[in-house]
Design a protein around this nucleic acid. Structure first.
Lengths: 145, 145
DNA sequence: CTACGCCCTCAAGTAACTTGAGGTTCAAGT
DNA sequence: ACTTGAACCTCAAGTTACTTGAGGGCGTAG
């Protein structure tokens, strides 16, 4: 299974949807192991690096901070540990994501309201009379929050 | 209506849900005008500062970047301008928020799936067999994305 | 042989704040 | 009058997760 033995950093980046500097950055902060080097000094990667980077990127897609990913990576590197830690991380992140979701929904409603109101009631008029601008700086009488 | 003539920075921060350093920071980058100073050098604020800061904070609640807020603030400061710019900013932000919402929903689903799967199939076992860790580093056979 | 693309390192920049050090000033209590 | 202690001040540096830029090397296709 050493089908894929030598990947350049560019190829690795492309396969994982990362940028080249990001890959170097992950190495620098220790999320990826120090890469092997070719004769000219270029980094060379193999399957296991690819797998690791896919893991890291996926975690980032889930908005996990680097610190949490570090914990998970160390879990992978010490496979005898209890995996309930991974579940805890996932659950904690789930809570965070749900809170964010609620916030964003409120936000969407508010913005949609303003866009419509401005279109209907004041579009093109002077900024002084804009419902958005007025409403947003009013202490009490704002529709949202 | 000069009911509220002298607010300290701490009082202003509290009323707007900002931190004190944040208020100073906004002044530094020009989102708030340079504050008046009391005899000992402390900043003093009035109604209009309060109004402005509420506006800025509300925009930040809507996740607007500082640059956009700067545009809106300058709209407020030049009230003769056409307000359709405010609507454009709101609409652009709406698009952004809706994209974010979709991403987060997918994210929530994925995380929930992992948490449940780990609870049912491997909780407490060694990390080597964890469905989360395995699944996330697999190139093809991942359920998500 | 030279032009091009990919690679390298190291330093600094980005957003939006937060944190820390080191030092005044203000309001209250004794 | 004096002394706390809270709240204020400035300036510098740290935070997160990268991106961007300067300055240079290697390899190969024309």
């Amino acid at each position: 299974m050493p089908a894929l033995a030598r990947l350049t950093i560019g190829a690795l980046a492309e396969r994982t949807g990362s940028s080249v500097p990001t890959v170097r950055y992950y190495e620098e902060i220790g999320l990826l192991p120090k890469a092997q080097r070719g004769p000219g000094g270029q980094r060379l990667y193999d399957e296991s690096d690819l797998k690791r980077l896919i893991f890291v990127r996926r975690c980032r897609d889930f908005d996990l901070p680097i610190g949490k990913i570090r914990e998970l990576v160390s879990l992978i590197d010490n496979p005898a540990q209890d995996c309930s830690k991974a579940r805890d991380v996932a659950e904690l992140q789930l809570t965070y994501v749900r809170r964010k979701l609620a916030e964003l929904r409120a936000l969407e409603e508010g913005l949609a309201h303003y866009a419509t109101a401005c279109n209907e009631r004041c579009a093109g008029g002077p900024a002084r009379d804009c419902v958005i601008l007025e409403d947003l700086s009013d202490g009490d009488n704002c529709c949202r929050r």
